[in-house]
Design a protein around this nucleic acid. Sequence first.
DNA 1: GGCCAGGACACCA
DNA 2: TGGTGTCATGGC
Length: 225
Amino acid sequence: MKRTRVGRREELLRIYDLLNGHFGDLHWWPADSPFEVMIGAILTQNTAWTNVEKAVIALKGQGLLTPEALRRVAEATLAETIRPSGCYRSKARKLKALIAFFFAEYGGRMDAMCREPLPTLREKLLAVWGIGAETADSILLYACQKPVFVSDAYTRRILLRHGLITAEMSVDRIRELFMTQLPHDAALFNQYHALIVEAGKTLCRKIPRCGACPLSSLLQGGIPA
DNA sequence: GGCCAGGACACCA
DNA sequence: TGGTGTCATGGC
């Protein structure tokens, strides 16, 4: 039977089980601390993760990956440090905006920020310059362990390639779908998004139409090569 | 040498 | 309100 849309909780859970059985626990997000996750969420905007890692290493090397250090550092210095991640001047400005918000609202403390109720924190994050829905949701889920499904262009592309959604379904609508169909479990949403990204990277890399790629085989119950 | 990567914003019609 | 341009590096 051809899958033209995801409309059922059972289908989403079936896909999750297939991917989870194949990849196992992926332990996202790769970072040493929730604060590093939050910074990485900005750096990864429209950027391959390998380039984000270079910027993170550079920040650590200069002792800048702490709230206080990022608050004090000059924006131009910050921009040069994160240059490998691309769009470095705008990202430096975004990081400065985020850090200013972080200190103004929560005194530069992740535990204080993450105690904020989910709807309030999401609204506040979205009001920060440079933070859109995808970045906000990544921070909420991966830094604060809030039960939010991270729906991004990558998720949409993978689901679309495999006929799991239709083209008119937006990134926002996909998030709504997962949030209404699945239990609000941060661990589930964490692993599910990670599985989708990992599947796209490893099973259908560089295949524009994945009709016959290993991920398709997996989703149809076969064993990927 | 072009395309894309774990986006968001500004600008314009 | 929706489409397009811009930011910008590095890997493939």
